[in-house]
Structure formats: structure tokens, C-alpha cells
């Protein structure tokens, strides 16, 4: 497992995948749909798939002494690695906004969603949707990535729109909690987001293994 991840990081990955992790800091931007940061992180991962196709990476990996499902596993491990790195940056931003910046005026006077634990949970859901729709779709052919990426863009922006709108619905204001208000609920929402990410990634991985097994390279 370590070898296949090392191969992904050293041979297949685009530098942009690592640079785009920094979009996690978008969780500090006031008056901006912060979940777009999660989208930009996945846009960076997408660059690595382009890079990998140009380098004949899938066939090269399939020729290594690993089972075909390990080629798929390598891609999912890479996705998760980048996503977790970005989530750490986002978590730092969330902690800052929950503590030292909790009363900062630009964050309080913000019609858009607050970058709180719920937002972090939703970022995980965005990552899960990327793993499910894009990576799962990519492994239908292990070659074509435009269609799965367009489908992912539509799905993720619908999701971001819903997430941004939710706290305006009467009774759901608690989703936009500041500081440590509604901490238990916020924490549960974060855990739910992580669980959805894990579930979507696992379902996608299993589907991708089945699909990749049937492909002639």
C-alpha cells in the first residue's frame, strides 16, 4: 500500500495537486462561498489524472507486481491524502474562526455560510462526491475524464448551493453557529460529514475495482 501511494506521489501526481491544497485556506475568506475551496482542492487532484494519462500511468501501474485493484487503490489513496491535507488546513481555519476570530466583524456580517464545523463536514461531503462521481466515473474507462469531471462539477455546485442556502431556512439557523455555540450539534455534523466521505469513497472504490477489472488496457 505504501509503495503504490509513493508511486502516485512521486510519479503520477501533478505539482498543482499539492499547490491546490492551499485553497484550504479559503476557509478564512469572509463573504465568499468557502466550500469553493474544497472544489479547488479537487480541481488540483484532477490535474494529476490528466498528468497520469499523459504518462501512460495506468498501464505502467498495471504492469507492476500488484493486483489490478491495487492500481485503483493507489488513486483513491492519493485522493484521500490530498483531501486530508486540505482538511487539516481547513480545520486550522475553522478553529481560528471559532476562537480568536469569533467576533470579527467581516465574519459576523456575512450572508454566506460561516466556516464552522458544519462547513468542514460539508467539505468532506464535497470530497466524497469527487471520489464517487469523478474517480468512480474515470475508472469506467481508465482513460476518459471529461464527462465524469463535468458531472462532478454539476453535482458539487448543486451541493455547495444547498449548503449555502440551508441556514437561511427557518429553524436551521443553528447550522451557521459562531464560536463554540451549538458545539455538540456542530461536532455531530462534522462527524456525519466525515462518515459520508468515508462511505462515498468506499462505495466508489468498490465500484471502480469492479469496473477496472473489466477494462482491456
Amino acid at each position: 500500500m505504501r509503495n503504490i501511494l509513493r508511486k502516485e506521489l512521486r510519479l503520477s501526481a501533478s505539482l498543482l495537486s499539492f499547490l491546490f491544497i492551499l485553497f484550504g485556506f479559503m476557509f478564512l475568506l469572509p463573504g465568499y462561498p468557502v466550500l469553493c475551496g474544497a472544489f479547488f482542492v479537487t480541481l488540483g487532484i484532477f490535474q494529476s489524472y490528466q498528468n497520469a494519462r499523459e504518462a501512460n500511468d495506468i498501464v505502467f501501474s498495471a504492469l507492476l507486481p500488484v493486483a489490478k485493484r491495487d492500481v485503483v487503490k493507489g488513486k483513491y489513496l492519493f485522493n484521500c491524502f490530498i483531501e486530508l491535507c486540505a482538511a487539516v488546513l481547513m480545520a486550522v481555519c475553522v478553529i481560528l474562526r471559532m476562537t480568536v476570530l469569533k467576533d470579527a466583524v467581516p465574519y459576523r456580517d456575512n450572508a454566506l455560510m460561516n466556516a464552522n464545523l458544519f462547513a468542514l463536514g460539508m467539505a468532506f461531503v464535497c470530497f466524497g462526491v469527487f471520489n464517487l462521481v469523478f474517480t468512480g466515473g474515470f475508472f469506467k474507462t481508465a482513460y476518459k475524464f471529461v464527462q465524469p469531471f463535468v458531472c462532478y462539477i454539476i453535482a458539487v455546485f448543486v451541493l455547495i448551493g444547498i449548503a449555502e442556502a440551508l441556514h437561511h431556512i427557518p429553524g436551521l439557523e443553528c447550522l451557521n453557529a459562531f464560536g463554540t455555540d451549538q458545539f455538540t450539534l456542530q461536532m455531530m455534523l462534522l462527524i456525519a460529514g466525515i462518515l459520508i466521505w468515508l462511505l462515498l469513497t468506499f462505495i466508489s472504490y468498490k465500484l471502480a475495482c469492479k469496473r477496472f477489472e473489466k477494462i482491456d488496457l
Binding site: R10, L11, E54, A55, N56, V59, F60, L63
Partner: peptide, 11 residues
């Protein structure tokens, strides 16, 4: 060995 396939051209 699979002939002249170009693996990771920039590595």
C-alpha cells in the same frame, strides 16, 4: 517490456 511505450516522459 512493452516496446517503445513512453512512461512518465518528464521524470
Amino acid at each position: 517490456s512493452t516496446g517503445t511505450v513512453n512512461w512518465y516522459p518528464r521524470k
